[in-house]
Design a protein around this nucleic acid. Structure first.
Lengths: 235, 235
DNA sequence: ATTTTTAAGTGTTAATTAGACACCAATTAA
DNA sequence: TTAATTGGTGTCTAATTAACACTTAAAAAT
């Protein structure tokens, strides 16, 4: 077999940052690493790419292994390639971030891994450069969510406007005027009000909404302005 | 040396998409590949990562090899990892895109490579998945330039407002009202008007401007709205 | 010398959007 | 029946955006 001679071959790992939302706070799913080095330390879920799979396939495989979920929001974020990032052997890390409905996860939790949800802001020390990866993902999530309708991916199929507002407020660590917020959201035309109400969180009850999936797909790239004064919040 | 056993090691290449602007059109710098497979075919400038360099270092090295330039705008875009993307041997491609002042390049052109500028829309067939990379970079450039002040990186130190407008119009394939355009640009506070005029392009002459570098750095992440009706133009 | 040509430069108005603001409604618990 | 809690909504003002046309400077042509 002819090959490129004289070049270094390295390991390539795919690491997934899995975001969830518990109704009040953003969380990330971490595992206790099962092998050396840094065994038992908290880590992103990752794995080496296999000979016949693409990067996207690897990310989906890893996500499925840990959560059992398929077809969730998954986006490649950045490649990390510091020569010393893995002390054992040079490894390029390709980071993906995923947004999942945390409740879906709880039903299908994998018992192969010691996995745990952590509040994003109270996560433990992570191995290698994983903390840097998480920080970048948080930044990217804020950026993207201010312009595009991606946060729905963190919510169950039926959700209420106050839940949605909680999510936005959690992500930006700010509070928004609910009149303006709900007007903005509803004016996108992406939400369809249901007949039932959610009675869990209030006496009065809040109407459930579902996504208009057709419009959601078509408007996924559209520019919205979900967050007031984004300059102050994103940076 | 202890290593991760049973895993596949692969080549990692860094490929650079180098954009320039000739005053009328966006261009990209391509080279004729100097080795098999696909020798003599047009290709992005790239190379394999070396044992002791990070991805960013590799990208800067490659950029310098080809253009002689350092300190230019360079951003990691995306990793490409289809298992068959390089027919000879599995290679992960990490793509960067660079914005350079094309005139700087002409002074320092490297003669090691058969390099040539092509109009972005009239580029020749490219090897492997390089065309896909270029398409994505073009998309990303449009996206980012609509919100952030990055296109200055394509212009010489002194430039005129009409030149700038030409650049924007070239990138979006649209024409903008010059009154609105110049008002928007000048209202960013990023431009400092010079005393001299550029007399090359008109009888009357257009004032030169330079970037206020301090403000440019501070506002690099700020949200602007350089492009009217971006929804129609970016997608 | 005057006129023509060409691109640069600038101001106003109308429509839309964003953000600040406060009250009423529904339900349950006391 | 009253109080407490959360959901839901409307108006006004300010800011932003986009549409629009004329004047100016300088060189070239007559």
């Amino acid at each position: 077999m002819i090959r490129y001679s004289g070049q270094t071959r390295v390991l390539v790992a795919v690491d997934c940052i899995i975001f969830g939302f518990d109704g009040d706070h953003l969380k990330i799913l971490l595992i206790q690493r099962g092998f050396e080095p840094e065994i038992k330390k908290w880590s992103l879920m990752g794995g080496f790419i296999q000979p016949e799979e693409s990067l996207d396939q690897a990310a989906n495989r890893i996500l499925k292994q840990l959560t059992g979920l398929e077809g969730v929001y998954l986006e490649q974020m950045q490649a990390f390639g510091d020569p010393k990032r893995d002390p054992l052997e040079r490894t390029i890390g390709i980071v993906y971030f995923a947004l999942i409905d945390i409740h879906q996860y709880e039903k299908q939790i994998s018992h192969e891994y010691h996995a745990e949800w952590f509040l994003l802001d109270l996560a433990p020390n992570l191995i290698f450069d994983h903390a840097e990866m998480v920080a970048m993902a948080k930044q990217k999530l804020r950026y993207k969510a201010a312009l595009h309708p991606i946060l729905f991916e963190l919510l169950p199929e039926k959700f209420t406007v106050p839940q949605l507002q909680n999510l936005y407020e959690g992500i930006y660590g700010a509070s928004f005027d609910k009149r303006n917020f709900s007007r903005k959201l509803l004016s996108t035309g992406l939400l369809i009000r249901q007949k039932e109400k959610d009675k869990e969180n209030s006496k009065k009850g809040a109407f459930y909404y579902i996504l208009d999936k057709e419009r959601y797909k078509n408007n996924f790239q559209a520019f919205f302005n979900f967050v007031p004064n984004p300059e102050n919040l994103i940076l």
